[in-house]
Nucleic acid binder design. Sequence first.
DNA 1: TCGACGTTATTCGAATTTGAACAACCTGAA
DNA 2: TTCAGGTTGTTCAAATTCGAATAACGTCGA
Lengths: 156, 156
Amino acid sequence: MNETRWLDEREMAAWEGFLQASNRVARHLEQQLRDEAGLSHPQYEILVRLEACPHGEIRMTELADLLITSKSGLTYQVGQLERRGLVRRRSCPTDVRGVLAVITDEGRRVLREAAPGHVAAVRASLIDLLEPEELEVLAGALGRVGRRLAIDRAPG
Amino acid sequence: MNETRWLDEREMAAWEGFLQASNRVARHLEQQLRDEAGLSHPQYEILVRLEACPHGEIRMTELADLLITSKSGLTYQVGQLERRGLVRRRSCPTDVRGVLAVITDEGRRVLREAAPGHVAAVRASLIDLLEPEELEVLAGALGRVGRRLAIDRAPG
DNA sequence: TCGACGTTATTCGAATTTGAACAACCTGAA
DNA sequence: TTCAGGTTGTTCAAATTCGAATAACGTCGA
């Protein structure tokens, strides 16, 4: 058991900044989407990912990985979206067990309407608060963090 | 209604990196704390904040603001911690409505035991993945983001 | 061909979170 | 002093999240 390497002042500042920014940005976006588009952030993300897929469809497990959520959580949210007609399910042609989540025309329409307000909120809460160099560093550093943590992830 | 300013490539990279890093780091820490200390991250944060306060105590509303959570959510978590003897409540001497959350000796002990593992996880999932310059930039930029969003917050 | 083993999506119960409603209380200006 | 208006912490119902358990299905080597 090694001696604990505590955080020094600048490490602490980075950590607290990261935590606080994560929380506040998340809250900001959640509220904006809820108010202006009637969607939760998880729901919005599902629509975004689906639209980016060929034919607007993808396997449930793959989608769960993209969204960094649990499979059961995705089942629930896709169920919500299906109820509202923004997504539908169809069974996978190559694997009887498989389910494809598919974005509907209505889903695309809702997404198209929600996107401008969402992008504005992302700018207001993060992007436009950063200098160009900061943006660059953030993209590089946090991209590395995400990729690093993506590796040693237990299956959900 | 202005034309939407969509995100360019580097802005998108920063945004996606931020989102993904937030999610993955949060998951990593949640699991580590649960496994090694039997605490959720919110609970750990409550203990940390309390210990940093004079006499290890603070008003509920102030604590909720520090933690960036709702008042009702805090009521619940403090209730959980009280059940386990890590925190106790006492009424505020200067305001009959007020309640002070107080960390107990047992709470301090549990926190002391949990801290090394938590710091190690924070290092492994974020801090030690960053170059010194990146750390500096992150602290500055995300600190600004947090402070900016702290201002226009609706009361909870 | 046949199992052993891993995958797939869902269901279930338990835990957690939120905002609204609420009762009780402070505060400051008239 | 009074009282309108804001605060305080809790309770409540509803929504969401997670992991374990489950049933059904692929895959691969012997």
